[in-house]
Design a binder for these strands. Structure first.
Lengths: 143, 143
DNA sequence: TACCATTGATTGTACATGCAACCAAGTGAA
DNA sequence: TTCACTTGGTTGCATGTACAATCAATGGTA
């Protein structure tokens, strides 16, 4: 016996997770807008900052982003002078690192991030936050 | 004293939530691909199915989607003959409902949805699922 | 009635996302 | 050494996402 449409409506995790994701991303995007930065790109800055020098495919694995998506996001960030590519022994690889501007930007946005984090926490509650943190650790190698 | 970059890396909710969201959306998109349907559009089908006749702006409120985003998504779904617009006393409004094809599609994809839901549950664990459900109820009027 | 603010939706623009197909570099085995 | 396979990345395409600006219909008020 297949599930009913109302069961999909009432139980679908994807609908709910995507809804929450949009709400939360909007909070961060609003806070970061004065800096010309979106949360999607801040995510990448943060990973590069943690790893110092990192290949796009590693970023993709950590953040669960497709290689092709990342390729173009990194392009945009390079043209904004937040990232730069460096040489690798393997000529196929195009590892990146933060530029000075990229490092400065991350520092500058810290207060705005903190404000967004506080808003998100208030919106969703500590329990959800903790749950997200646990699950992310389970799904990814991020921190 | 502003937060440090490593604090952003280690605590940012948005990074983690977006990461999980991508992983989960991919599970559902994979399952729905044979039907030419993506989870983003299934979300809309489900809301329309629940409300029978509904204005785009109501859908947007429930799912936290911008009106302009929805406008184009609905266009695509109308050209696939899953939705149709109907008249309203208020000539500005463009309420939609499911077509027969739309209703049939929702029924057809039920088993695929069920499979995706099971995979997502296994990936993330029951605790997270429950947490997502609670939080969604808090943020939206969906179900 | 005339005007203005509000509301529902669309359009221009830019960016994010992923699949399929591709290219180039490296690797391993016959 | 050669050739098939793998791996890192890019490109074509379609869709999803949101902000700003706009348009059209409505509603309230002078």
């Amino acid at each position: 016996m297949a599930v009913s449409v109302s069961q999909i409506a009432n139980e679908c995790i994807a609908v709910r997770l995507r809804l929450i994701n949009r709400a939360v991303s909007n909070i961060y995007d609003d806070a970061l807008r004065p800096f010309g930065l979106k949360v999607s790109q801040m995510n990448i800055l943060v990973v590069v900052s943690l790893r110092k020098i990192v290949r796009p495919s590693e970023i993709g694995e950590v953040l669960q982003i497709d290689r092709s998506t990342l390729s173009r996001n990194i392009d945009r960030m390079k043209s904004r002078d937040w990232l730069e590519s460096i040489e690798d022994e393997d000529a196929r690889a195009q590892p990146v690192r933060l530029t000075k501007s990229g490092k400065d930007l991350l520092k500058e946005v810290s207060p705005a991030w903190e404000e967004a984090q506080a808003q998100a926490t208030e919106l969703m509650g500590d329990k959800f936050i903790a749950s997200v943190r646990d699950t992310a650790r389970q799904v990814s190698q991020l921190s």
